[in-house]
């Protein structure tokens, strides 16, 4: 029996050490990516614009249709639930406030983050993992090309630029969609709704959401890269780490979201 307890403690200890090591690795990677972005030119390894743009197209523009669809759906869903729950107080007319704040502060960044984690974070992990097992990462290194500068920094920059822009777009779309439902239900004009939204929303609310999406961008990239570059064990390993990266990225996003709200909102 004591042996079993020692065994359990042993496993917990090892898992904790592995977890800490992974955190450290993630921090190192982030530091290196920023280092190459800032000092790359001086060390004769500038970060090129072309791969950043290519990544931005992939991460951002290609995600617009799905982000549009889902944020419109979320907007309408919030409007429906808002009107339903406010009916209890006979305060349906106040629904705009709830919808506007929750969309801009919470739902848009969250939905965008989760979608990008699923679309691009996993793709990044799979790409790096495949490159790892094909020795392409080693090939880059022995060519004197820093894999971090060549693969990670462009993805990071593209993510950090595109994620807030996608969030902004999601804000607009879901507010518009919510407006369509609210104006039809409460017999108010779209113009009146828009006017109300503009009066109710403060710049602070918008920035709250956008700042969060910037943090999510970093999280998704770093989690994708850490998992992708730690792949061992062939194609199965790539699949395992890709799944892990999506799960970790989404968990990180949701938990960070809560902390951010806790720190900033009260």
């Amino acid at each position: 029996m004591p042996q079993r307890i020692v065994g359990v403690l042993d496993r917990i200890g090892r898992a904790a050490v592995r977890g800490m090591a992974e955190f450290g690795y993630a921090a190192t990677l982030l530091g290196q990516a920023v280092f190459w972005l800032v000092l790359g030119r001086r060390r004769r390894q500038a970060v090129r614009l072309a791969p950043v743009v290519a990544q931005a197209m992939d991460v951002g523009i290609a995600a617009v249709p799905i982000i549009t669809t889902l944020s419109a759906t979320i907007g309408i869903m919030l409007a429906i639930q808002g009107i339903y729950s406010l009916k209890a107080f006979g305060a349906e007319s106040r629904v705009t406030l709830g919808v506007a704040l929750s969309t801009v502060r919470e739902f848009s960044p969250l939905i965008t983050g989760i979608l990008v984690a699923g679309r691009s974070g996993s793709a990044l992990a799979a790409r790096l993992g495949t490159m790892r097992i094909n020795q392409e990462i080693d090939a880059l290194a022995v060519m004197g090309i820093s894999p971090v500068r060549f693969l990670v920094t462009p993805a990071l920059v593209a993510m950090v630029v595109m994620m807030p822009l996608l969030t902004l777009w999601a804000d607009l779309v879901s507010l518009f969609a919510a407006g369509l439902y609210i104006s039809s239900q409460l017999e108010m004009s779209m113009a009146a709704y828009a006017d109300e939204v503009v009066t109710l929303l403060k710049m602070n609310d918008l920035l709250h959401g956008l700042a969060k999406s910037g943090i999510f961008a970093v999280l998704v990239t770093v989690v994708g890269v850490v998992n992708g570059s730690s792949v061992t064990g062939g194609a199965e390993g790539v699949g395992r780490m890709t799944t892990r990266s999506v799960v970790h990225a989404i968990s990180a996003i949701v938990i960070t979201d809560m902390f951010f709200a806790f720190m900033v909102t009260r």
């Binding site: 004769r44 790409r127 490159m131 094909n134 020795q135 392409e136 080693d138 004197g144």
Partner: peptide, 20 residues
């Protein structure tokens, strides 16, 4: 090391060509 690596070439077993 970076400068050194521009003066050496490596052909990996699998080729390690960038598939993209």
């Amino acid at each position: 090391v970076q400068e050194l690596r521009t003066r050496m070439g490596v052909a990996f077993q699998s080729g390690a060509l960038f598939s993209s």
